[in-house]
């Protein structure tokens, strides 16, 4: 069993169609802690001690957020800046995260084709997420491929429900350790491990 911590960040969840659909039923899955950052820290005043204890109790850290300007919303960055302290997360004495896993769950309006070398964004999602990837590595964590929802503006209710189902399946697979790490790392997206 792996314990999963979802660090969810959306500054306007009340008007988000995709993300509110995506997180339906997530918090009731055993072994999963759903942590709504904008709800917990409306003033960006992240409680570092509490967050570090939370991270220590979990094996997999998930940064779940909309893909704002090829990155995350400000509070996710604030969380990383404050919580991943020197001598705790990194540095010669910072070993708290060694052996844990991390990945991003993102939602974006662009299609898969747009995030290609010849597409309009010129880079893949994986390339854009490289700062997260390297942050995880620096802290001794294994960085998994991201779970991605594309072309969010065009999705129907059924398609959103499908993504929700897939997300839950992925989380359950990871929580139950029912898939080997090499299998996971082979994929471009975590969505693909269901194939």
């Amino acid at each position: 069993m792996s314990k999963i911590l979802i660090l969810f960040a959306h500054p306007r969840l009340e008007s988000s169609r995709i993300n509110s659909g995506l997180i339906k039923g997530i918090s009731s899955i055993p072994g999963i802690t759903f942590h709504d950052l904008y709800e917990a820290y409306p003033d960006y005043d992240v409680n570092v001690k509490y967050e570090q204890e939370l991270v220590s109790k979990n094996d997999i850290i998930v940064w779940h957020h909309p893909f704002y300007w090829y990155s995350c919303p400000a509070l996710t960055k604030q969380w990383i800046d404050l919580v991943l302290e020197h001598n705790w997360a990194y540095g010669r004495n910072g070993k708290a995260l060694v052996g844990k896993k991390a990945f991003n769950v993102i939602t974006t309006g662009g299609r898969h084709e747009a995030y290609q070398k010849e597409g309009m964004h010129k880079r893949t999602i994986g390339e854009f997420l490289y700062p997260f990837n390297q942050t995880a590595r620096l802290c001794g964590m294994t960085y998994y491929p991201p779970f991605v929802v594309h072309k969010t503006h065009l999705l129907t209710h059924q398609e959103i429900a499908k993504y929700n189902k897939d997300y839950i399946k992925v989380l359950e697979l990871l929580a139950n350790d029912s898939i080997k790490e090499e299998e996971i790392l082979k994929n471009e997206y975590l969505n693909d491990i269901l194939k």
């Binding site: 992240v46 570092v48 800046d81 404050l82 919580v83 302290e85 020197h86 001598n87 540095g91």
Partner: peptide
């Protein structure tokens, strides 16, 4: 016991 958290670079500079 609250310090400047991740923004506090003193220990990093020292290291």
């Amino acid at each position: 016991d609250i310090k400047e958290e991740g923004w506090d670079s003193a220990s990093l500079v020292e290291e």
